[in-house]
């Protein structure tokens, strides 16, 4: 499936709009990683564990978005946007949304 954050697709023509599709995940990190992160807050540097965690949850919400788009019979999702919010201490929500469309070769 074609995923893009532009509102047009180069070389393709949008033949049908199928509306908004979205996917979201809420993830929490485990306590062990939190202790490591606490230490890192003293020394500085990248928190690889968190980078990975957020990356994985983003992949998962993208998968959900794609499944929704497939169910609608779309072959592309355009105008994709991400949004992250930390809803509680130690948990964050990753939200991704876009427009499901049917595209054809021009």
């Amino acid at each position: 499936m074609l995923i893009s954050n532009m509102e047009v697709v180069p070389g393709k023509k949008i033949v049908r709009h199928l509306g908004l599709v979205q996917g979201s995940t809420v993830r929490a990190k485990h306590a062990g990683r939190d202790i490591m992160a606490g230490l890192k807050n003293i020394f500085g540097g990248e928190l690889k564990g968190y980078t990975e965690l957020l990356h994985d949850s983003r992949e998962e919400s993208m998968e959900r978005l794609q499944r929704q788009a497939e169910a609608l019979g779309a072959n592309a999702v355009i105008n994709v946007r991400f949004s992250t919010s930390s809803i509680a201490a130690g948990a964050s929500e990753i939200f991704v949304y876009g427009t499901a469309v049917v595209v054809e070769d021009r």
Binding site: M6, E7, V9, P10, K40, G45, E46, L47, T51
Partner: peptide
């Protein structure tokens, strides 16, 4: 919107992310 030179290209979403911590 990309210029006309890319009118025939395929496209896909790419991303990169990083978490960086402050120090004390």
């Amino acid at each position: 919107i990309p210029p006309i030179d890319f009118a025939r290209h395929d496209s896909t979403l790419v991303m990169g992310s990083v978490v960086i911590s402050v120090d004390y």
